[in-house]
């Protein structure tokens, strides 16, 4: 089955790039969306298998999305320019894999793959 990934990223070019990259590698992309509100709305509809989150969305931090994902046991990776995103956006981001910005493509694909493999079967 095709796996789904939610992308939250406020820069449209980066969002387009991530979407294309992940689609080329067999993912079905949910979004991308640029705001916390839009992301939370998508989560109400259907949960993705994993999520890829930018941290600083310009006017807001991605924190509420990370918290919602955590509460629903959806694993996520971070693509942020911050070296330690939890210092800016809360403890919920501590421990999540940060694939960096610009994201190293191989690292990004491996990180998402790993999040899925870690999931309990069933």
């Amino acid at each position: 089955m095709q796996r789904t990934v939610l992308i939250v990223e406020d820069e449209f070019l980066i969002a387009m790039h991530l979407q294309r990259l992940l689609e080329e590698h067999g993912w079905r992309v949910i979004g991308p969306v640029a705001t916390v509100r839009a992301a939370l709305r998508l989560l109400e509809e259907k949960l993705p298998d994993v999520a890829l989150l930018d941290v600083n969305l310009g006017r807001e931090m991605v924190t509420p999305v990370a918290e919602a994902l955590r509460a629903r046991s959806v694993p996520f990776a971070i693509a942020s320019a911050y070296e330690r995103p939890e210092r800016f956006a809360g403890e919920v981001l501590a421990g999540a894999v940060n694939v960096g910005k610009p994201a190293v493509e191989r690292r990004l694909l491996a990180a998402l793959r790993q999040l899925i493999d870690r999931e309990p079967v069933g």
């Binding site: 070019l13 980066i14 387009m16 790039h17 990259l21 610009p102």
Partner: peptide, 11 residues
């Protein structure tokens, strides 16, 4: 900004 330029080159 560098990241946007990177994506632009990729796209």
């Amino acid at each position: 900004l560098l990241s946007v330029a990177h994506s632009m080159a990729r796209l």
